[in-house]
């Protein structure tokens, strides 16, 4: 225990090790639901006009007639060998789809986290600083409204009404250029990489609406957390000490008080990752963003079992890792924390 680099490495290593049983559990649960609950997926896989023989051949081909445990072991061993399977309908390898879709989602989530941070945290500070007054009430109404709006409703309104009205692109398909042509598969970074500045602008424009839709509706979480922890920090003596040094209100609020409030806000933002990822399923479908959320939707509704399981694994790992990241950030922000 301590705050050395080696302590941090041990801490992160331990946490990553704990990831393994979680991933195994996630696989078991998803496998169970897909393979037990769905009656005869081959009716879908073989196509709507398939003959009984074709369906039978499909069942044999995917081994659906074997005991469930057999099927599970076979799936697990292929998974461990690095083969994540392919979409039973069409045969596109799952890993290929995911590896190009995941960066697009990451870009979307990072962009909305950015918006949440840049708008949400100052709003929380403003609300806490004027607690009980009109600014506070206004901010609370704002963030509760965001909270109370279902993601899909906000996204539909932004995509169908607001986007066309203010002339922002409402679809993630980059019609003029190949969408992702660089090493990172993130539109903005790739365009930067290629030093194609018009493309950077274009990519940013495409990000605005989906990222806002994802962010605005979760903005409340950052704002509420900042507000609450600022209310806890503001009456503390060290804030008075800062005031008594003759520092301006701005420095007192944003350097001394906010710095300590951020510790809890960061934790919440890490937990929010799960909410944001859930949001991508809806947002990416509505905005046709070529990310993992849209892929998840297609896989789930299309009985693409390997795809569904793979997507769920990716989501679970992403959630666990973002929780880990927020823990590490917490430790960095609060010098009293020891890694253990």
């Amino acid at each position: 225990m301590g705050r050395n680099k080696s302590d941090l490495i041990v801490f992160v290593g331990k946490r990553l090790l704990q990831l393994l049983p979680v991933v195994l559990g996630v696989i078991v649960i998803t496998f169970f639901f897909t393979h037990v609950a769905v009656q005869n997926p081959c009716a879908v896989w073989a196509g709507a006009h398939a003959t009984a023989d074709q369906v039978q051949a499909c069942i044999l081909r995917f081994g659906l007639n074997r005991p469930l445990t057999d099927q599970f072991w076979r799936y697990l061993t292929t998974l461990l060998s690095g083969d994540w399977g392919a979409n039973p309908r069409g045969g596109v390898p799952v890993l290929l789809s995911i590896s190009s879709a995941f960066p697009a989602t990451l870009e979307l989530v990072l962009a909305s986290l950015f918006i949440m941070t840049v708008i949400g945290i100052p709003l929380g500070v403003v609300a806490a600083n004027g607690a009980g007054r009109w600014a506070d009430h206004l901010v609370r109404v704002f963030y509760l409204s965001g909270w109370a709006t279902p993601t899909y409703l906000g996204a539909v309104v932004l995509a169908i009404a607001v986007g066309p009205a203010i002339g922002l692109p409402t679809k993630g398909d980059f019609t003029t250029k190949p969408p992702f042509y660089g090493p990172t598969h993130m539109s903005v970074l790739d365009a930067l990489w290629a030093l194609d500045f018009p493309a950077v602008g274009d990519a940013l424009l495409h990000l605005v609406l989906p990222a806002s839709a994802l962010a605005l509706l979760n903005l409340g979480i950052a704002t509420r957390m900042t507000r609450t922890s600022m209310l806890e920090v503001l009456p503390l003596d060290f804030v008075k000490t800062a005031r008594m040094k003759g520092l301006s209100d701005f420095v007192v609020l944003y350097k001394h008080a906010l710095r300590n409030s951020l510790i809890s806000t960061v934790t919440i933002l890490g937990i929010t990752a799960g909410v944001l990822l859930s949001g991508t399923v809806v947002i990416e479908t509505i905005f046709q963003w070529p990310g993992i959320g849209a892929y998840a939707y297609d896989a789930i509704t299309g009985y693409n079992f390997p795809g569904t399981i793979a997507v769920v694994i990716v989501f679970a790992v992403a959630v666990v890792i973002s929780n880990l990241l927020s823990d590490v950030l917490y430790g960095i922000l609060d010098p009293r924390v020891e890694w253990r």
Binding site: L236, D237, F238, K240, T241, A242, R243, M244, K245, G246, L247, S248, D249, H256, R259, N260, I263, L333, D334, P335, R336
Partner: peptide
């Protein structure tokens, strides 16, 4: 008010644990 404080009026508080910024 900040101009009044610091160089004008200084203050020492009761609990030194709370009166220094932990961060």
């Amino acid at each position: 008010l900040p101009l009044l404080r610091g160089t004008g009026i200084g203050m020492i508080f009761q609990e030194p644990i709370n009166s220094l910024n932990p961060a």
